[in-house]
Amino acid sequence: MTRAASTPAPARGRTIAPWNWPLVAMRLALLLATLLLCTPLYYLLAPLTARNPVPRWFLRAVTAIAGVRLRIVGVHPAGRTFFLANHVSWLDIPAMAGATGTAFIAHDGLAAFGPLRWLCGLNDTVFIARHDRRSVAAQVEQVRSALFETGALTIFPEGTTSDGTALLPFKSSLLSALEAEADADQIPVQPVWLDYGEETRDIAWAGAEPGLDNALRILARWRPVRLAITFLPLLQESERVDRKAMAHAASHAISAAMATRRG
């Protein structure tokens, strides 16, 4: 996942009430127990399967432990798919992975923390240096390889999180991975709208809020986090003529879905 955007966020109380800390502690204990259970299972199954199912099981459990109540709208292709989704919260990642088994493209800043890099690596995360314009060609090649090796792959074209009420401009450079290979035409490209409903602004990791503060604030919630993942229609051939057309079509589809809810 990328670091939060500079999109202004509403003022929030940063202090967690004393009576909420037992809930945080319980959820952290459950997350640790799930990790300790899934890690040996992952390595046990690794030699037996091309696409290890344990990361999906683990991330699905993370979603539930964090209090997310997930609703799926629409359908997505089974197997290899390129998802283009809006990005609101760190919860987007376990929710999408649990629902689809997707891997992700993430900023290489996450790789600086060894345990997190290891954990992301178990789910075949592709780390790229978004701000290094000199390595764009190499990054595109990484994405192209991942598309053919990992199955479903998700990119957040905004490049960071927003407050969820509107989309940031979609970056299109990494979509070049779908231009150069003839076989890439056979890979479905699907826009996805991640919607936290009326509490989107409160859930969003945006503005200057540190990531740890946001995570603890979410884990301290007694109310469930309601997330609808809407799989929008696949991009058509006319919308895939080049990377900019794909970015525009996906952004338009998600924006239209958001406008429908507001209406």
Results as ranks from 00 to 15, higher is better:
residue 66 A to S: 14
residue 183 D to P: 09
residue 221 R to T: 07
residue 182 A to I: 13
residue 184 A to D: 04
residue 97 A to L: 06
residue 89 S to C: 13
residue 111 A to G: 13
residue 112 A to V: 13
residue 11 A to H: 14
residue 250 A to T: 00
residue 225 V to N: 00
residue 137 A to M: 01
residue 140 V to C: 05
residue 130 R to L: 09
residue 194 L to V: 12
residue 82 F to I: 03
residue 35 L to I: 06
residue 130 R to E: 06
residue 127 F to Y: 10
residue 248 H to M: 05
residue 91 L to G: 11
residue 243 R to V: 00
residue 64 A to K: 11
residue 102 T to E: 00
residue 215 A to S: 10
residue 248 H to T: 12
residue 174 L to E: 01
residue 213 D to G: 12
residue 212 L to R: 10
residue 149 E to C: 09
residue 8 P to I: 11
residue 229 I to N: 07
residue 70 L to K: 07
residue 153 L to C: 04
residue 235 L to G: 12
residue 231 F to R: 03
residue 1 M to A: 13
residue 192 V to E: 04
residue 95 A to G: 03
residue 216 L to N: 04
residue 231 F to C: 06
residue 251 S to Q: 13
residue 48 L to E: 07
residue 241 V to S: 13
residue 196 Y to L: 08
residue 162 S to R: 06
residue 151 G to L: 02
residue 107 H to K: 15
residue 63 T to H: 06
residue 231 F to N: 03
residue 114 G to F: 15
residue 164 G to V: 02
residue 170 F to C: 08
residue 77 P to Q: 09
residue 29 A to C: 06
residue 225 V to G: 00
residue 197 G to P: 04
residue 182 A to P: 15
residue 25 A to F: 08
residue 45 L to W: 08
residue 181 E to K: 13
residue 86 N to E: 05
residue 222 W to F: 11
residue 115 P to I: 10
residue 154 T to E: 04
residue 190 Q to V: 05
residue 51 R to C: 10
residue 76 H to N: 08
residue 207 G to P: 02
residue 180 A to D: 13
residue 175 L to H: 04
residue 257 A to P: 10
residue 172 S to E: 03
residue 136 V to G: 01
residue 11 A to M: 12
residue 249 A to T: 07
residue 32 L to N: 05
residue 51 R to G: 00
residue 173 S to F: 07
residue 128 I to E: 00
residue 220 A to H: 01
residue 229 I to P: 07
residue 261 R to M: 09
residue 24 V to C: 10
residue 151 G to A: 02
residue 248 H to D: 12
residue 14 R to V: 12
residue 133 R to F: 00
residue 15 T to S: 12
residue 144 R to E: 11
residue 257 A to R: 11
residue 77 P to A: 03
residue 172 S to N: 08
residue 107 H to I: 11
residue 152 A to I: 04
residue 25 A to W: 07
residue 12 R to Q: 14
residue 187 I to T: 07
residue 261 R to A: 12
residue 176 S to N: 15
residue 3 R to Q: 14
